[in-house]
């Protein structure tokens, strides 16, 4: 061991690494949310749901203001233990069991009980970070995406009087959200693979489509098929498929994400099927 090596060890040893109080809460939250162990455990479908306030609008020129409503992120987890028991939890430790049929009521209660504040430009929740939003700037989506790696957070651009944005992407800490304006929506509704059009990196592919719920609501769904990724144990596995959906219900915009670890056609279909079931649960 040379002198510099010894110095590095000493620096590491003496470094006052701040261990935030939030770490204990985060660990507690993770422990409280663990699915029951049992036969068949091996895959967890997670349903993440984000409720936005009413003032956000998708269509075309109405994007003139992303606005006055607020943003509140909630996350519902659904565990699959192979025994048909489903559980949901609300981030923050208030985990409880909610059947999927009651999901829409649960979301409404969450939105009602958690008054949102005005939208801020930089809304960052626990385990979730959204791209910083600017207003008053208009950029064509392709110009904006050129040269950016898929790993970067994409900024969103609010519409101003010069015209609406075309696309808005949010790179969360564990997922990709896609929100579109009317003109891009039309393109995506055709089911076009927008991989090349919007500069996504390498292995990532997005397939968009429209899903009509049982009650006639129209939801934009996106199936994200990334490339290989690490499963947390240094083992290369195909990327986690995610199915995303966005729909407007009762003045609220909902983002829903279903993620299933491991990728094969069957798994991806299950994620989409699960997403459709959740969507069907909305009035």
């Amino acid at each position: 061991m040379d002198e510099f090596d010894k110095k590095l060890f000493d620096m590491a040893k003496n470094e006052d690494v701040y261990t935030p109080a939030g770490l204990n809460a985060r660990v507690r939250e993770a422990l409280d949310g663990l699915p029951a162990r049992g036969a068949g455990l091996g895959r967890t479908a997670r349903v993440a749901l984000c409720a936005l306030a009413a003032a956000t609008v998708l269509a075309g020129t109405a994007l003139a203001a992303f606005s006055a409503g607020g943003f509140r992120s909630v996350e519902l987890w659904r565990g699959r233990d192979g025994d048909d028991s489903s559980w949901y939890g609300v981030k923050g430790g208030d985990y409880r069991y909610i059947p999927v049929e009651e999901l829409s009521d649960a979301v409404r209660k969450i939105a009602r009980d958690n008054p949102v504040a005005d939208t801020t430009r930089d809304f960052k929740g626990k385990n979730w970070s959204a791209a910083q939003e600017l207003s008053g700037v208009t950029l064509p989506a392709n110009d904006f995406l050129d040269g950016l790696e898929i790993g970067a957070s994409y900024l969103t651009v609010s519409a101003n009087k010069n015209g609406p944005t075309r696309l808005r992407f949010w790179q969360g800490t564990d997922g990709l959200w896609l929100t579109v304006s009317a003109d891009a929506y039309t393109e995506l509704m055709s089911g076009v693979d927008i991989h090349d059009s919007y500069g996504f990196d390498g292995d990532t592919e997005l397939y968009a489509g429209e899903y009509k719920t049982e009650k006639g609501l129209s939801a934009l769904t996106v199936q994200l098929k990334p490339g290989e990724s690490d499963d947390g144990l240094g083992e290369r596995t195909p990327g986690t498929e995610r199915c995303l959906a966005e729909l407007m219900v009762g003045g609220f915009k909902y983002h829903i994400r279903v993620e299933v670890d491991g990728v094969n056609v069957k798994t991806g279909d299950e994620a989409l099927e699960t997403l459709h079931r959740v969507l069907d649960a909305f009035e």
Partner: peptide, 23 residues
């Protein structure tokens, strides 16, 4: 620790929040 390191590496791959100024 191994699992945490690999999850951290996955975090890096998923990206981070950047500002317009940084961009």
């Amino acid at each position: 620790t191994k699992i945490a390191v690999n999850c951290a590496r996955a975090q890096l791959k998923r990206g981070r929040e950047i500002s317009m100024e940084e961009l």
